[in-house]
Nucleic acid binder design. Structure first.
Length: 411
RNA sequence: CGGGCUGGAGUAUGGUGGCAGUACAUCUGCUUUGGGAGCAGAGAGACUGGGUUCGAUUCCCAGCAGCCCGACCA
């Protein structure tokens, strides 16, 4: 992609109506734009990042046997009355059709999926099944805050697993746990598996927490066995590790994902049952596995940056390489175009700063702000050799070598 | 939902009870090109409603919006 064709501009100064680091950086660098509190447009660079995050998540869900679908965001009132959550869920956005009928904007999808599955599950032979989607969710937060960390409209992956018995459900819980560990590893994000409250559904569940002062959660992280537990559920708020008895430190963290058993709760509401081998009717037992993909983008921006701007992990950076042409001489321009075309032909994802009449300083400053981890410069200085300057973000080292050689080593 | 702060050009901001200024961005022209360039010119702005006043962008009240603190957070 050429920067000259990118309509979304960077800002020289951070926005005055944002305080949180992720919102400031993402808006200033032109990744997102606020429409109203907790409601953001994903601009081209932001959408690239979001898609990369979601594809990493998607890949692991598929590996774990997940089947992807896309449910509606608009939910009829009737579905939510079945579970009593039309009244009980206070963050529910409610809306009316002009032509009759009341709806909710979906904050979660049990009400839709359970009614959907009545048609598809009737025998133990139909189980287990693992269904997920990556979708826009709506929650009427009383106080949206901190940019993408607590939004009214946000992106989320939610997988629901359905089983013939609790044992199989617990088996799959462990599968998901491993998947989540793998996801965060691939995202380049350090997430701490943390024992957490399962709300009304179960005694225990697991959250994946990223240490940050911007976090709303407090967790106890054991210095000896590395077990973590959310302060909410720690016995008497005791920071002593409940696993090994070691000393735990209290840290602030942001919840990136949460996995927990739903058991038979909604199956009971919707009468979602199946016949077992003996022909006996039983309720389906389920698990729920959520991961906020747009929040993950906010978390990365929150925890990975320096004074000059964002620093994306390699796997989620909007592009692999930021190519900058310095100067406007025809020679430089020609060399830049040639290199850009070659890189594209090689399948390299490259953001090419081909903007005319921009000074070197401005281009470098924008590159720093945008935070693609690898940068190449074409200029008068580099024309004599068959090479360009390559620089890893946040590193003073400048190497001169052919870009292809470097990229081969880089992967 | 309670409390606090804020509301002015695309962005950021100074000043002000009396014709609304500056920087960057934008447009025109020329120069410049390895860390947010220079000169000349141009366009572009006070959240809404009420009050005080001869006169309100400025003071007061209300609403709305944004941010922050708290409560809440399937």
């Amino acid at each position: 992609m050429r920067l000259s064709e990118l309509f979304a501009k960077t800002q020289r100064t951070p926005p005055k109506d944002e305080e949180s680091k992720n919102a400031k950086l993402l808006e200033q660098a032109g990744f997102i734009q606020k429409l109203s509190a907790g409601v953001y447009t994903f601009l081209p660079l932001g959408l690239k990042v979001l898609n990369k995050i979601e594809n990493i998540v998607r890949e692991e869900m598929n590996k774990a046997g997940g089947i992807e679908i896309l449910m509606p965001a608009l939910h009829p009132k009737e579905n939510w009355e079945v579970t009593g959550r039309w009244q009980a869920f206070d963050a529910l956005f409610k809306t009316k059709s002009n032509f009759g009928g009341e709806y909710a904007l979906g904050p979660t999808h049990e009400e839709v999926l359970y009614s959907l599955l009545k048609k598809h599950i009737s025998s133990y032979r139909d189980l287990p099944v693992y269904i997920y989607q990556i979708q826009t969710k709506f929650r009427d937060e009383k106080r949206p805050k901190a940019g993408l960390l607590r939004a009214r409209e946000f992106r989320m992956k939610d997988l629901y697993s359905f089983h013939a018995n609790d044992k199989d459900r617990d088996r799959y819980y462990e599968v998901m746990k491993k998947s989540y560990v793998e996801i965060f590893k691939n995202l380049g994000l350090s997430a701490i598996p943390t024992i957490a409250s399962g709300g009304t559904f179960s005694e225990l569940s697991m959250e994946f927490q990223v240490a940050s002062d911007a976090g709303e959660d407090t967790i106890f992280l054991c210095g000896e066995c590395n077990e973590a537990i959310n302060k909410e559920v720690a016995k008497d708020g005791n920071p002593k590790c409940q696993n090994c008895g070691g000393a735990a430190k209290e840290i602030k963290a942001i919840e990136a994902g949460n996995i927990f058993p739903l058991k038979e709760k909604y199956a009971n509401d919707f009468n979602l049952n199946f016949k077992d081998e003996a022909g006996k009717e039983k309720l389906v037992s389920a698990g729920c596995y959520g991961l906020g993909t747009s929040r993950v983008m906010g978390i990365i921006a929150e925890v990975m940056s320096d004074k000059k701007g964002l620093i994306w992990p390699k796997n989620v950076a909007p592009f692999t390489l930021h190519l900058i042409a310095v100067g406007e001489s025809p020679k430089v321009k020609k060399a830049g175009e040639k290199l850009y075309a070659e890189l594209i032909a090689d399948g390299c994802e490259v953001l090419y700063d081909d903007r005319a009449e921009r000074t070197a300083g401005e281009k470098f400053a924008d590159a720093d702000l945008i935070g693609i981890p690898l940068r190449a410069v074409v200029s008068e200085k580099t024309l004599d050799t068959d090479s360009v300057e390559l620089k890893e973000r946040n590193s003073e080292a400048i190497r001169l070598e052919t870009i292809k050689t470097f990229l081969e080593k880089y992967d």
